[in-house]
Structures are given as structure tokens and as C-alpha cells.
Design a protein around this nucleic acid. Sequence first.
RNA 1: GGCCCUAUCGUCUAGUGGCCUAGGACGUGGCCCUCUCAAGGCCAAAACUCGGGUUCAAAUCCCGAUAGGGUCACCA
Length: 516
Amino acid sequence: MTVRTRFAPSPTGYLHIGGVRTALFNWLYARRHGGQFILRIDDTDAARNRSEAVKPILDGFDWLGIDWDEGPTKEGSGESFGPHQPYFQGQRNDLYVAAAMKLLASGHAYPDYTLAAEQDSLRKAAEKAKRPYVHRGSNRDVAPAENLRLYQEKPAAILLKVPDGVKVTFQDHVRGQVEVNSDTIRDPALLRAPDQNGICRALYSFATVVDEIAFGITHVIRAEEHLSNTPAQVLIFQALGASVPEFAHIPLVNYKNEKMSKRNLPPLTNDDIAKLKACGWTEDEIQSRDDLNIATVAYYRELGYLPAALMNYLVRLGWSLDAESEFIPLETVKANFDLDRITKASANFDEKKLYWLQGEYMKLVSPEEKVERCLPYLIRAKFITEPVSDSARRLLLQIAEAAGDRIKLFSDMVQFAGPLLKTDPVYDPKAVEKSLLPAKELLSSFREKLATVDPFDVPTLEESLKSHAPEKSPHKALVAATRVAVTGVTVGFGLYETLAILGKPEVLRRIELALN
RNA sequence: GGCCCUAUCGUCUAGUGGCCUAGGACGUGGCCCUCUCAAGGCCAAAACUCGGGUUCAAAUCCCGAUAGGGUCACCA
């Protein structure tokens, strides 16, 4: 039997990091075992702007390189591909209704005519008596044929008839054997009572089971929050006469020890905002993107993270290859991923470690590729214009080489190339005061010397600057002054590289500018 | 509150009864390198939640307590 896994996002308009990890585990498990990974859109809720809310999710997966064998088509048009179309639950309601009717006929389910108010008072009474309230509907013990007849006459919500006093058991690859007494499981609703249009829509929990069966899902790998409704689902599988798939409930991704949710996430840091602004974003643009926070894929994409780094980080969050591997290439993960090595406890998301991994992956990127992938940021920041000329590319390549490991995110190029690409440096007053003013005369004489330096390359420049520094004081002060004069700021990659890249006339011009 | 899950450095983790004076990594601190910033090198601090068992031996098995989390919809 070939492995078939699935990920079933609901269309929220953005791809959440926690969801990605769940999807990743499913994907990896399928790939490892030569099976299929299926994407299904859980939109039983509303028909509202579906494709708009699905697209960012599909784009996110596409960017990460997580491909699906069946599911919605990439363009997010609402179309599906694969043998069990459609893959949108919103388009599959007939199937769910049919399955519910089958259960009604077989006596595994029944219509519930309990009034909301009635149910409320039952619940309150139970609470008062300090008894747990486990809902059992009105027609639970009515004969199937009679229920069927009644339902046709007057449709209502359909509930599963949970058997009394049995142990519901299932094996979980992460949790081991899980066992629950059926008396603690309320009769779950399968279908809603008809809406204004007379349509009885399925509930998520039921639609999921029907789809797992229809799609031939062999392994349900999902977040731990679904663990508590799994026993009810197991019962549905059995009532439908289907075999129960294998389960793996993976620990949640936490942030500061709580489930990563919109509520407990930090806002964009000033650093993030500064970075985005440097890349040409306006305040309004930043504010309007509520999908930008540390829990979304879009955030990392916009900042210029590598998909590989994010994937590596996410797979290591709750899974380990061995005792010491942290940097694990995707190919290695694909060949070794295993449900047995998933941790049981939930894990905190640590953006610092992700950042470190990003740096590690960035070291593997050639300067040429860095230039290529930094281009969109530079264009957006208006440092270069399209089409990008060969001379601009050559210049950027020099900068990328000189900046080296300092470029951690693709957006960082803006910071390193900006000062050289601008017509005139933007002088930071503090830097000027601290480094430039005290060494003005020294700088002035050094400028004269620079005019005679030939060739204008790194070794010659270094030799020339060092020999120009006064005997008693080290050359640091002169380096600092020159750096500020030429770039306007105190930090950057090597000064000699900076000078060489700018070229003699431009360097002389900029120092002249700074001195006046 | 009911039901369920979990528990090793600040964080991610290794650990499946003796290789554990508990290993690795991020982060943190110090030193080195150095024109700033990165990168790199070296070093350091830092954990088995608690209490009972079982056993010659327990981070590891059992029980209990405690703490944290999830879930309790005609939401997904």
C-alpha cells in the first residue's frame, strides 16, 4: 500500500509557520516512502472570496518547494487536479450528505431535534450537578427507518450515535496508544440543520473523515490540537465501514510557551520596519500587510530568507536526525525523515536560531546568485532601475564579494550597496562628529596622497593608508574617518574594498564633499 | 471545571536501566583575530520539576503530586 498523506488548510489568506511544519512532515513522510502528498482546502465554512484566500497559501508552498501530487491547481483559480476531484470541501458537500444518509440508514446516526434552549438548560443542569455534559440528541434511540422518514419530513442536524460504554482506542505514531471511554464523547454533529437555502452542510470533523476515506489517506499527520476529536473521528471511520488510517499528532509550535496565534505574537520590530523601509516600503504598505509577522511565510519571504533555511529550521523543531545535526540539507531529511523521531512535547519557536540557520545557508550561495536575488530589493529601494545593466551587475558582484557573509538576508544588500550606489553619501551626524571631525586634517592630507595612488586596488590602498597614519597613533582613526567620509556611516565591509569599488575619482570627490 | 496530552541548560534537542561527573546546537558572557560590522578560532556559565517506589544500578520503568499546554460549537 502506498503512503498517502495530506495537508488541509482552511483558506485564511496567509500561510502560517505552524501549518507549514505540519505540511512539511506530511510531505516528507510521503516523499520518504515514495507516496503521494495531497492538498485539500477545508472551506466547509463559507463560500466567501475563496480563491483570493487560497492563493497566498499555494504561493507559499510553491516558494518553499513543497509540491503536491493532487489538490488545487497552482493558480488558485478554484480548480483541482488529481483522480479524486474536487479537492475543495466546499465543492464536495453532496458526498458528505450521501455519507450521512448512509449512516442514518444503518442506524449509526440520527437526526437531533433538541432545541438549542433545551440543550442549554441540560448543559447548565449538568454543570450545576458537577457532572460533565455529554450531549446525546433527541432521536438517538429511534429506529433507523423511522429516523430516516422523520428526517425526510423535517431535516435537522445529524449526529453520530456514539456507542455506550466502550473503549475507543487508536495507535498514534507520536503518542503511542491512546484510549478514551466512549461515555465521555458527545455525539458529534455530522451535518448541520438546513440553512436558508435548504442545504445541510457538513461539519469539518465529518467532512475530513469522508475525505480521508475518499482520497485513500493512509497517514493522518496533524497538529496535536486535533488529538481530542480523534476518538470521535475513529468512530466515524468505523461507522462508515472504513479502515482507520494511522495517526501522528505532532506537538504544537509555541511562542513563549503558548500556541502561536495572532494574539500572542510580537508586532514587527523597529528593526524589521527599518529594514522594510530601507527596501522602499512605505509606512502605509507596511501597516496594510497584516500577514507580515514572525508566524507567516510571507514575512520571511519579504525579508529575503532562503526557503531552505526555513525548511531546515521547521523540520528541526520537534524532530531530530541524530544527536548533533542542526544543519540538515533537505535531501538528507527526505531520505531519513521518520515519525518515530518526532518529539512529544510542544516546541517554542526561536527566531534567533532560524536567523543563524539562514546565515549558514547563505554561506552556500554564490555572489552571482546573491546579486540576482537581491535585485528585486534594490529595484524596490530605487537604487537601480530595470533593465539592470551589465555594469550595474558587475558593480553589485564586487559589492557582494566584498560584503561576503555580512549579507544574511537578501534584503541586506540594500544596506551594503546603498551607500555606494547613492550619488552622495548621506552623512550620519553622530558618525561625522565622532570619527570625521577629529581627523579632518589627517583626512585632508590623505586625500592628496590618494590622488597619487596607483594602482587603485586593495593592497596598494592598504599600504598607502597604513603608511600615512601618524607614527604614534594607529591607523584606526584614519580608517574610520575615511569610511565616514566616503560612505556616511561607520559600519560596512572592508574599507579598502569600498575605496577600490568606488574608484579613485569618486573617492576623491566624496572626501572633498565631506571635508566641506 | 470535564476529558486528553506533555515535562532534560533561557531556547531547540540527544538520551529507550549501567557507556551520564548528562552530549550537541542557538542564544548569552569572556578572550583571540581585526579598520567598523559580520565571519572565524578558543574558553566559560547553564538542565534531568518534586516526592515515593521497582532495581545491585534510574534522566531513562511504575505511582502520585505539581506545573504547563490542548480541547470541550449545527468553527476549522
